[in-house]
Design a protein around this nucleic acid. Structure first.
Length: 290
DNA sequence: CAAGTGCCTTTATC
DNA sequence: AGATAAAGGCACT
């Protein structure tokens, strides 16, 4: 099946799947292969054409957020020359509409790990606790259900390379099962309320919560702050902060909770209702220019 | 090539 | 409030 993109609907598959927002996609030749929910599918792009197998067009439009009016979002977040440079270079990068449960566990696992290590952990978890499916001759594993991870032993989780994260994953899985954690409700409520509920989960701090909100709960104003984004702000946006704040954060490795909130709040105020897009562009830009 | 550094941080403790 | 330490292990230099 095919989707034809018009020039008013920019999209670049490679940027979108390579920018570190998702961890379970694999590229062989032109084809990207992955699983979303129960659906294994493959997709490739040539020019303005998307070709895919395994799911229908509306699934693709939803997962890749082709419904976001990207040119209009650019107009809103285009506040200065830093962000403009990032937009010009990576135009077509889109935030994905990920599955909340998988996104939550992915970012709990992502703390203090690099992207390739995160991919490995999640592949291990899926192979061990997920269901195998096939598309053509390729085999895939779905992401394990909450019940499955809730029942898993700590030892088994650690064998997947989770380390100290194993206990957070286990406890969060249990809480999600027990309280029947309603991700759909979080999608409908405000950024602030949804964030508070996420912060109650073990292994979820402000950074993880903001990522889950942005990538899976429809909160495009969310502005996650990691080491890279902090670096960007300390480099290009110093004038929006006090001298003490800049000094403190330049000298120190760790980021205090209150300073996290200041940085994240700045992002939301400065870039507005689609600050999350600005964050992704700045993040990817900074990473690729180091 | 070995050893050091860094990693899309959170939590516990003082 | 804020500082500090600890917590896998792997990739990269």
């Amino acid at each position: 099946m095919y989707i034809e993109l018009s020039s008013s609907r920019p999209f670049t598959l490679d940027f979108t799947l390579c920018c570190g927002q998702t961890f379970r996609w694999d590229k062989q030749g032109d084809w990207w292969r992955g699983v979303v929910g129960e659906e294994a599918f493959e997709i490739r792009q040539y020019g303005k054409t998307l070709e895919f197998e395994g799911v229908n067009a509306s699934f693709i439009e939803s997962y890749f957020r082709l419904d976001d009016d990207l040119p209009n979002i650019f107009l809103h977040i285009d506040k200065d020359k830093n962000i403009r440079a990032a937009i010009n270079e990576f135009k077509g990068l889109r935030i994905l509409r990920q599955e909340p449960w998988e996104c939550l566990i992915s970012y709990i696992c992502a703390t203090y790990k690099n992207i390739s290590a995160i991919s490995q952990m999640l592949a291990n978890l899926s192979r061990k606790f997920g269901e195998e499916t096939h598309l053509d001759s390729h085999s895939f594993y779905t992401f394990p259900k909450p019940e499955k991870l809730a029942k898993a032993g700590l030892q088994e989780l650690q064998e997947c390379g989770l380390g100290y994260r194993a206990k957070y994953v286990s406890e969060t899985a249990r809480l999600v099962c027990k309280k029947a954690f309603d991700f759909e409700r979080l999608k409908k409520t405000t950024y602030e309320k949804a964030r508070e509920e996420l912060l109650d989960l073990p292994g979820v701090g402000p950074k993880v919560a903001d990522c889950v909100l942005l990538f899976s709960l429809e909160k495009l104003e969310s502005f996650p702050v990691d080491v890279w984004i902090r670096r960007v702000i300390l480099k290009y946006y110093t004038k929006h902060f006090s001298n003490e704040f800049i000094k403190r954060n330049s000298a120190r490795e760790s980021l205090s909770r209150t300073d996290y909130e200041k940085l994240s709040y700045f992002g939301r105020q400065y870039f507005g209702s689609h600050a999350g897009y600005a964050q992704e562009y700045l993040y990817h830009h900074e990473r690729t220019h180091r």
